[in-house]
Structure formats: structure tokens, C-alpha cells
Design a protein around this nucleic acid. Structure first.
Length: 154
DNA sequence: GCCAACGTTGGC
DNA sequence: GCCAACGTTGGC
């Protein structure tokens, strides 16, 4: 089992949407490095931090679990989709998605500001300046550290 | 294969 | 809305 952070703009798709629908196809990833992670490494049962970006308080908002590994992202073939890609074909798909299920929404999101000020997370890609990757791997140590340190326990 | 121009991301 | 950082494109 591996650990990941998936970015999403909450105005487009939020942890609340994932909670409401229960599961989702993680569509619309249009960056080759992120695509390669999705296609080659993300596996069923992997754990995923759902991260809200481009919003008032950027933060890890909850957790999801991978329920289906890579398959072609159908929005690349859909002319009416903002994710349409004229250079992709069904015989030679360019973009992939995985499917995730809702696991939990944090009562208190773990903010980027918190993570950035933690020197134990200096080598976490998310906290690095100019990090734009939307699918970020993290090791089990980082995953557990973040949960143990920042998740409010009840 | 280099690199300038352009486009996008995303924090602030 | 600004802009730094990064990714992509395309001429040469």
C-alpha cells in the first residue's frame, strides 16, 4: 500500500462532493508527471490525502481510498468537456484516471500554512516553493507523522 | 536538442 | 488580481 496527495480545487470538486457521492473518478489530470504516477504507481487500497488548492485556506481536507487503478480518462475524448484533448485517441489514450472512495472529512483541515512551518516536512513536495504537481507521493513516515501530529483526536 | 515564448498553477 | 515557478510548444 502506498500513500498519495491529490490536489483539487474545491470550487470544482471538494471533499464534500466526494462525501456526497461516496466515490469519484479522479478525472482531468493533464500533466505528464502526475499522469505517470496515476498510470504506473497508484494501486487499489492506496491511501490518499484530498487537498484543497486555489482557495481561501489551502489544506488537506480529508482522506480517500483508491478503489480502481488506472483506466483511460473518458473526458479526453469528450468534445464538450474542458478536459478534451484532440491529440488523444481511444486506441492510444493519453490521460488516465483512478477511482477513489470517500473515507473521511477532517473536522479541522490540515492547512498548508501548518505544514509549511513544520521543519519535519521540509522534504515533502507539497510544502516546497513552486510545487505544482497535482499527484504527490509521500512515504508512510510522512503520512503517519502528519496524521499523528495534526489530526484532532476525539 | 535548444530555448524563447507562451500558458498554467496556485499561494499570497 | 499579481506574479513566481514551472510545464509545454514549436521554430530553428
Amino acid at each position: 500500500m502506498a500513500f498519495w496527495l491529490f490536489k483539487t480545487e474545491p470550487d470544482v470538486f471538494s471533499i464534500d462532493d466526494l462525501c456526497k457521492f461516496g466515490k469519484a473518478d479522479w478525472e482531468g489530470v493533464r500533466n505528464y508527471q502526475a499522469r505517470n504516477f496515476l498510470r504506473d504507481q497508484v494501486a487499489i487500497n492506496d491511501q490518499v490525502f484530498i487537498y484543497h488548492s486555489s482557495c481561501k485556506i489551502p489544506a488537506i481536507a480529508g482522506i480517500a481510498t483508491v478503489i480502481k487503478d488506472a483506466h483511460p480518462d473518458p473526458t479526453q475524448f469528450d468534445h464538450s468537456s474542458p478536459y478534451f484533448d484532440a491529440k488523444a485517441s481511444k486506441t492510444d489514450p493519453r490521460w488516465y484516471q483512478v477511482s477513489v472512495k470517500f473515507d473521511q472529512k477532517f473536522i479541522k483541515p490540515i492547512t498548508l500554512s501548518q505544514l509549511k512551518s513544520d521543519s519535519n516536512l521540509d522534504d515533502f513536495q507539497l510544502t516546497k516553493k513552486g510545487s505544482r504537481l497535482s499527484i504527490i507521493p509521500l512515504d508512510e513516515g510522512h503520512w503517519n507523522y502528519i496524521i499523528d501530529t495534526y489530526l484532532i483526536k476525539f
